[in-house]
Nucleic acid binder design. Structure first.
Lengths: 354, 354
DNA sequence: TGTATATTTGTGCCCGCACACGAAAGATAT
DNA sequence: ATATCTTTCGTGTGCGGGCACAAATATACA
């Protein structure tokens, strides 16, 4: 009477199937050289005992290396994508014993050629997995088609794209988050009839379909619940401070009664810092993402609410999905919407994304 | 010219220090039997190369087993603690290759003897780590003192206790969460001058200091920002439905103008379902925790906001902290406040705690 | 100087698994 | 019947590190 150990090993399977560990190994990995009879016997016991390999021992023995490449928009330190990078490196660190490494490449979100060039470079490097922020949907398909052909799995973060489904997507449902933002805005606005949307435009290009979708959701809520509310718009440049401030001055001179506003990008601090500099305390501002400058505005009162989307977690989960797929051979959920988090001065200190 | 591999191994250290792997191993584990000279040399190289052991190989070789015991309040399926258990099992599953196992024991939160008996039982089992929900602070110290004496690390979840600091605490800052709840309540209330707090009392015992602290925070906000607001109270029993409904009927008959209420426990659905059954649509209700029945109320409109505290993550992080400490020898942050999450009908579908 | 005893160091095996190599058994050809 | 090839299978080695034991060196004492 042999008692089985809690954790089933290949050795145990082999003994029960009356074959050697080599044969069990061949069955598990679907390699050739096993008779139908043995194969069947082993597979049956494997299933019956629900054998789960020790992935650490497996990784140790196989001694394989995995290299991933991420393709993100160029950005300055402290901007939104910095947080995504943090998550990426964090995930790589937790999987470092599996011989994983990552390289982050960049493209100019306002120049489509740049994206194509960068994706070309990645293809020649033949990584084991790719993670890309497809802020320019129309130029992504050519890239992912080639990845598909090379059998390289790829992850989308931040924005999703209809076309071919990736291995996984991590990001917010932008439309819904805009819809939610509208409800929060109107809760602050208390029946006011004027709202302003602050946009950010660079050479006529919005630069991210996230922003557009958030605005669509926002307007949908307004139509459904406050159809009589007047929605104004102001396009800022987010480049030279004084220029933006002048435009804001002009706007508020022309619309002195507007008391509520929202930005659908991560640059709410531009408006927040303006409000602070002008001593305007009666304005309700909602913005996106926990940039340091946004958080400062939130704490000092010039921003009422920030909506966050856990960028670190997006980056980390993207890498984890690649590892789950390639190393652990686990099934990966394709669509992964991140939570829509509302942060206020009362809750900001307790927010983190681990 | 020897090129070092990306990942430094004991073997590499040994070669550089001109000793055997056995000696390096002894230095790493602080075992005796190493001359001062060798020790110093090895330690220097260790530090210089920032050697990080392959924890998976280490776990494989040492072949140690770790058993943890959790002590939670008894509860029915679907209540708050179910989610904590989920997180516990999830974490154990991810660490299963490290030979970890967990056992969950229960005590009656309304009977202090029960807690003492249960903790006694745990001490005789001599687990490698303990996680406890100290809802009865005054009876916990005797237990943790004994654990300390046995050198068994312990984690608090949900509530923290002043006394002796545990290895780590995971839970919400209850006071602050009540403070935040008050702000949200008043945002919904729009200048109304009456608020009702629904409590839950069982045989005169509140059963959790979380609830009390949330109420303290709530009242603090009200005093600071709406001192003239009238705060009513209603104690429910949460046992037989009809009895609670009668009390609610009576309350609303006596106070027909009250349009805003909050519960500081997870039983908001008692009030939510009541409102629904009576067709009261003009009442703003805020509650805690994502029980299925609460979520249903949120979706159907009888609850406006739910405040969540990621119970799965609390459970999972507690186990992870024990593993980090015992297996990976990593430093563990002692105080870990969970985020204060606001959920609405617009965001609930995107909320999850992974 | 030799022997006994500490102290320090090196070696080998094992953990669970992957993979290469070679042995054994069966099939086909001559 | 023997040689050759193919299919099927078992064994051995190594991944990085823990630990027991043996070996080597140092120290004590006669």
């Amino acid at each position: 009477m042999n008692k089985l150990p809690e954790r089933i090993r290949i050795k145990d399977i082999a003994r029960l199937a009356d074959v050697s560990v080599g044969t069990v190994d061949r069955v598990i990995h679907g390699r050739s050289g096993v008779s139908e009879a043995s194969k069947k016997r082993v597979e049956e016991i494997l299933k019956q005992l629900d054998y789960q390999p020790n992935m650490y021992a497996s990784a140790l023995a196989s001694n394989k290396k995995y290299t991933f490449i991420c393709l993100l928009p160029e950005h300055l330190e402290g901007e939104y994508w910095t947080a995504v990078e943090l998550g990426i490196h964090e995930a790589i660190a937790t999987y470092s014993d599996f011989n994983t490494s990552v390289k982050i490449n960049y493209y100019d979100p306002y120049d489509y050629h740049s994206f194509v060039d960068a994706s070309e470079a990645i293809l020649t490097l033949q990584p084991d997995g790719v993670m890309v922020a497809p802020t320019a949907p129309q130029y992504t398909k050519g890239f992912t088609d080639r990845l598909q052909a090379l059998n390289i799995p790829y992850i989308y973060i931040d924005s999703n794209i209809k076309d071919v489904p990736p291995l996984a997507f991590f990001g917010q449902n932008s439309r819904q988050s805009g819809y939610f933002a509208a409800r929060m805005m109107m809760l602050l606005a208390r029946g006011e009839k004027e709202i302003v949307i602050f946009r950010k435009i660079h050479e006529g290009i919005v630069g991210s379909n996230q922003q557009e979708n958030r605005e669509i959701g926002f307007r949908q809520y307004m139509e459904e619940h406050h159809p009589s509310c007047n929605i104004l718009e102001l396009d800022l440049h987010a480049e030279r401070n004084d220029e933006d401030n002048e435009m804001l001055d002009e706007f508020f001179r022309a619309h002195p009664t507007v008391k509520n506003g929202i930005t659908f990008n991560s640059k709410a601090y531009i408006v927040g810092e303006y409000l602070q500099s002008r001593g305007k305390k009666d304005f309700n501002l909602i913005g996106y993402d926990l940039l340091e400058r946004n958080v400062t505005c939130l704490k000092e009162g010039s921003i009422s609410f920030l909506i966050a989307q856990q960028p670190e977690l997006q980056g980390a989960n993207g890498i984890k999905a690649l590892c789950d797929h390639l190393i652990f051979k686990k099934d990966v959920t394709c669509i992964n919407y991140m939570p829509i988090d509302l942060l206020t001065v009362e809750t900001i200190d307790y927010y983190h994304s681990k």
